[in-house]
Design a protein around this nucleic acid. Structure first.
Lengths: 200, 200
DNA sequence: TGAAAGATTGCAGATCCTGAAATTTCTTCC
DNA sequence: GGAAGAAATTTCAGGATCTGCAATCTTTCA
């Protein structure tokens, strides 16, 4: 299991901050995987990382958020990615390309995501929080797409649908051994979308 | 604003139970609409209905659940509806028909849904809870669809996508004055889905 | 080295939510 | 009508979550 350390050009302070955050996420995830959501308190997590529980709340607004972690794609990043797609490309394809990059990132952290999804399965009450991360993403994406196409209703629809396809694909991916590449599955899903979801 | 009282052949006890639940939902919704989610405690809600706050938790597992309320379509009902659709009908159309009926129900309680959606807009942290209610629905529907078509992956995809379309449509509907009929908007959305979401 | 900025901590306190036992209300049956 | 039983409500105690605030410690940088 590899930890993601994107410490480039950062002072010691910020590096420690990143490390603390990552350590908290790691501790939260592993502890909950072992004992279940209710069996782990914020104090447990904080103690495992050797910080005060107050500090935990400086990093995450809730226990659940530590588990879901940094799944939300950052706004700036999304914007940049979408900007990289020529404006002639249809919205659905543009979304597919953006989500492909996301899929690649998920694959790079395969183990962590598998653990996360396993924890999600075992603690369905977490689902809302996972989705909540997706909600802001959806709002943002919808806005960007709406700029591309004129139609606002269409932007809402195509974005919602694309993200739903992404989510469904991730579930499918995780339920297998993660052997078929996520990117491949994603392309399949989008091909079906473009095909009008005709019966297989 | 009409209250929904489907008290047919029910003893006084169960009638009172239904009424209490409805009253709690009503109080929660109106209070939060006035003061915002953080400005309303469970005790406030319970007091408005004149029950103990413990009783509140006998009805709802959390404050949020009272606000989202009984939006989840009951499993049996869904099953029945879907059974009413001939097995020859493609999955996407079957889902459209089932969701149309749901849309009709929503329209029948237009005022309440508008208030609910307004509260949702003003308190985005509720959105996950709304969606999460849909999650069990999605699981159930997916199972039923999987039985119809053989392909499991396709069932996941088409269900997730259809529900996403439904959700997006409800948002669009509520952001307007609710003037265009929800059912009409829904048909539009599904037409676009069947069309492969080509650019408008 | 000596501020200044930032991160961590302890503490108080409101709120959320749960279990268990006591109490009240409703139903049923005689 | 009234007693027995079932079900709902309440009270109470208590653990856990989360926030604001002020104090303390650490890093940065001039």
């Amino acid at each position: 299991m590899t930890t993601v350390d994107s410490n480039e050009e950062l002072g010691r302070r910020d590096r420690k901050k990143l490390e603390t955050r990552a350590a908290l996420e790691r501790a939260a995830l592993t502890l909950v995987a072992e004992r279940g959501l209710a069996g782990v308190t914020v104090e447990d997590i904080a103690e495992a990382v050797d910080v005060s529980s107050r500090t935990f709340f400086n990093y995450f607004p809730s226990k659940e958020d530590a588990l879901i972690g940094r799944n939300r794609m950052v706004g700036a990043e999304l914007k940049e990615r979408l900007a990289g797609v020529p404006s002639g490309v249809p919205a659905l394809d543009a979304l597919r390309l953006v989500l492909r990059e996301q899929a690649v990132q998920v694959q790079d952290q395969r183990e962590w995501w598998m653990l996360r999804l396993k924890v999600l399965e075992q603690n369905p009450s977490l689902l809302p929080h996972l989705i909540s991360g997706g909600v802001e993403t959806e709002l943002l994406l919808t806005g960007l797409i709406a700029e591309r196409v004129g139609d606002d209703g269409y932007a809402h629809l195509v974005t919602a649908v694309s993200l739903a396809a992404f989510r469904a694909t991730m579930m499918r991916w995780s339920s297998g051994d993660g052997v078929p590449k996520l990117v491949v599955l994603l392309d399949e899903a989008f091909a079906r979308l473009a095909d009008g979801l005709s019966t297989p």
